[in-house]
Write a protein that binds this DNA or RNA. Sequence first.
DNA 1: AAAACTAACTAACACTTGTTAGTTTTCCAA
DNA 2: TTGGAAAACTAACAAGTGTTAGTTAGTTTT
Lengths: 188, 188
Amino acid sequence: MTRRQEIMGTALGLMRNKGYLNTSMRDIASAVNMEAASLYNHIKNKEEILTNTCFGLAEALELGIKDVNDIYFNAAEKLKMAIHNHITVITQDLNASHLFIHEWRHLSEAMRNQFISRRDSYEKEFRDIVILGFEEGEFKDVDPKFATLTILASLNWVSEWYRPQGEMQPKEIAEKLTQFILSGLQKN
Amino acid sequence: MTRRQEIMGTALGLMRNKGYLNTSMRDIASAVNMEAASLYNHIKNKEEILTNTCFGLAEALELGIKDVNDIYFNAAEKLKMAIHNHITVITQDLNASHLFIHEWRHLSEAMRNQFISRRDSYEKEFRDIVILGFEEGEFKDVDPKFATLTILASLNWVSEWYRPQGEMQPKEIAEKLTQFILSGLQKN
DNA sequence: AAAACTAACTAACACTTGTTAGTTTTCCAA
DNA sequence: TTGGAAAACTAACAAGTGTTAGTTAGTTTT
């Protein structure tokens, strides 16, 4: 592991605990046993940490959803795959996910706008699956936007409670979520 | 409206946009046309804004869920009422909700612990409804903790996209969410 | 009229922030 | 063994932080 990766990783851990704004360069430095100024030999500046992380995860999610939409399945199968992909990415690095989900607001305006638009287009891909399901006659006539936001909220929230050492592993989480989203809580 | 309420309200608005840490006392002061120091004639300190808001909403939610559990209904009815209550509280003041949901981490440690324990016990009340539904034979055999977290994630997320001027009003949102949570996306 | 209270002000304190400049140490390849 | 890059250091900067002290004008109560 390079020094840069060590700094990045440590920074993400601190930022997950204390928040991005509340984590100072000096906090990061002392966590890796150096002076704040020395960090700049390895990273450009504080925002790079946030930018790198947010766009890294965005890319990973986008890659996954492209695969899903390229394969010609029915909506239920597509949704299942999309959920599986999302959970896999999100649970990979919980520290990074926290930044991605909560701290992107603190990106500089230009980066933030770029981020939002990529986020929106990811959402749209999800929404298209919901719409497809309706057109197939398989899904109920729900408001697609409403449904999509609700689904994504559930998926993202996993990063708050998932513990790698816990009993539920990403694959199982994805399956249960798919089940829950498709057919709900109630017996029929 | 008292000056104190004006300050509180303005502060919440700023904090929702920029985040709690990123909103300075000077920001708040200039938004209500006074000097930062003058704010201290009306509020104790910055943290009071956060504390007040977080515990205010906690109380509102608790009050609601007590009502639900006092009435002897079946689980489906209870869940419906609990969701309705939650959405009503959350959509009441979006600025406050944002602090409640996202910024409680920045409470001082003592307050934070208190907050977390009240949050946990609220969650437990929800979980009990899910368990009741299973015991009644009405709900599927899901992991109650998992289901509850998923449900609450969906409910809280409403505060991110709900717009008072929009076409969906709290009552309708609650109904659709209940529908979605109980019977999912798929036709049967 | 005197006293007390309210709510604003200016000025300042002590500290923290991200970052840069300039310098020294470390370490590896030739 | 030495030259040079990489990576650490110290010192400092300009700006911003929450908060306190002391003061003042205006209003309300005694």
